[in-house]
Nucleic acid binder design. Structure first.
Lengths: 114, 114
DNA sequence: CCGCCATTTGGCTAAACTGCCAAGTGTGCA
DNA sequence: TGCACACTTGGCAGTTTAGCCAAATGGCGG
């Protein structure tokens, strides 16, 4: 992969964001954080994994710049930092739905001629 | 991870899209496809990997619904199917840039008192 | 039908990712 | 100071992913 270092670096940084979002548990947490900030214990209850696992997931999201954390006493609260994921989620959902519909129409094109 | 199957399925499908985008080479190709459709040979030249590797990358993007392909003679042309990635890329870039700036300001807060 | 070209698929190894347990860190309270 | 609580980090085994080569597929011009 030979290319301009600046362009390469941009794609690396972008890829890190996508990598961070490329896991069902992490998506679930981000979805939850769209509503409001949450402590680790709440997110742990949400995804149902070991707290150490959840903590590592949060670390991935934080390193990528998707979320931010703040300690308040013994607890640590996470909030969504990259707000635009919300709009993208909606777009992905509607696009996937559209594709599923097209697929359905194709399969049934012979049984229900237009 | 115990949760409602519908919600789970939605997050799985979303995660597949993000996983597909979570690789520098694939991001580079998607970026290129924002401009116009491209054949495999053009994309191979762009990323500079083996054509078999590029083909597999494209297969990942296609399965996730991000791109679509069409055979024309001996060549196969790929086009961007999930158009909204463009807007999201722009948002991610500006957000990452903002974060980098904030980080810079923090580090130099003592040397350049406001 | 044959050879050539563009692309995909199979197979293999190295690297990265996941998730659990155990151990470590930081905070508040007695 | 000591202990309980919230969370993070280290480490390990199992799974997935990446990228190369080689082999197979599909289409086109003889």
């Amino acid at each position: 992969m030979l290319m301009d270092p600046r362009t390469l670096a941009r794609h690396e940084a972008r890829a890190q964001v996508f990598k961070a979002l490329a896991h069902p548990s992490r998506l679930l947490m981000v979805d939850e954080l769209m509503q409001s900030e949450r402590c680790v214990c709440e997110l742990t209850a949400l995804v149902g994994s070991d707290m150490s696992t959840v903590s590592k997931h949060l670390s991935v999201l934080k390193t990528a710049g998707v979320v931010a954390d703040e300690r308040r006493g013994a607890q640590i609260w996470y909030r969504l930092r990259m707000k635009c994921v919300a709009r993208f989620f909606a777009c992905v959902d509607s696009e996937l739905q559209r594709q599923a519909r097209e697929q359905f129409d194709l399969v049934h094109a012979d049984t229900v001629p237009k």
